[in-house]
């Protein structure tokens, strides 16, 4: 397994053995595996993880940054001879003589490639990477609601991706009124929110008192007026 040599200028301070499956932390605080007692070094400055056959250096968003071969890094796959600079100290990453080195610096090059994970490995990887991460609940989507102020009663959920309002009986909300369109307006649910769009009819629908001639994004408690109906919009 490779070793890390901690140096200050040209003086070797200490050597550390890397082991497969073990992480090493670097920082000013004493609980780190590699302690560098210098004010230029953050409490928890960087870490080196064993990943597959290789080792990955990661800066822990330190104040003064971490550098490998004088390049600023956030993460870096270590290869033989790399010099990590932290403050005024340097750490040299080297394989021992005769030791087999991984063929590519980045054994996980395929990580760049898209991959899919099933729910279980998703959860376990997340737990490792970020202990507090919640697994997403895809069933919990925001639901838009229209609540009648006039021209009707109660609440209507926007149950469709493209929700139609107008005079025709095929609409999701049927409204009456002179010159109101057969389909007067639609509300579409997009990843970015709910959008209210004028569709037809001479009498233009209004949102917050302003005639809509094209499309507006709805906000909570916007007031929609179409023909005889007046409704509040909100997201549940």
């Amino acid at each position: 397994m490779p070793i890390l040599t901690l140096k200050f200028k040209d003086n070797v301070i200490k050597e550390y053995d890397l082991e497969k499956g073990k992480s090493l932390s670097i920082g000013r605080r004493e609980e780190n595996n590699i302690v560098i007692d210098n004010l230029a070094v953050s409490g928890h400055h960087a870490k080196i993880d064993s990943v597959g056959e290789g080792f990955l250096a990661t800066d822990l968003q330190s104040k003064n940054g971490s550098f490998v071969n004088e390049q600023f890094i956030s993460t870096h796959w270590l290869k033989h001879g790399d010099v990590i600079t932290i403050g005024k100290h340097s750490i040299v990453f080297e394989y021992k003589d005769g030791e087999t080195k991984p063929e590519t610096a980045n054994p996980q090059e395929n990580m760049d490639q898209t991959m899919v994970m099933d729910t279980n490995s998703y959860k376990s990887m997340l737990a490792k990477s970020s202990p507090n991460a919640a697994s997403p609940d895809i069933s919990k989507e925001p639901v838009g609601v229209l609540s009648y102020v006039a021209g009707g009663q109660g609440e209507v959920e926007i149950s469709k991706k493209l929700f139609k309002i107008g005079k025709a009986s095929t609409n999701d909300i049927v409204v009456s009124g002179f010159l109101v369109g057969q389909v007067a307006a639609t509300i579409s649910k997009r990843p970015g929110g709910f959008f209210f769009t004028y569709s037809g009819g001479t009498s233009k629908p209004k949102v917050n008192g302003v005639s809509v001639t094209e499309s507006v994004q709805l906000k909570d408690f916007d007031v929609i007026e179409i023909g005889s109906a007046k409704m509040h919009f909100f997201v549940k």
Binding site: T75, T114, M115
Partner: peptide, 11 residues
Amino acid sequence: NLAPRFAHMLT
């Protein structure tokens, strides 16, 4: 704070 590899990990 998630590792960069998660950017390409599909659900």
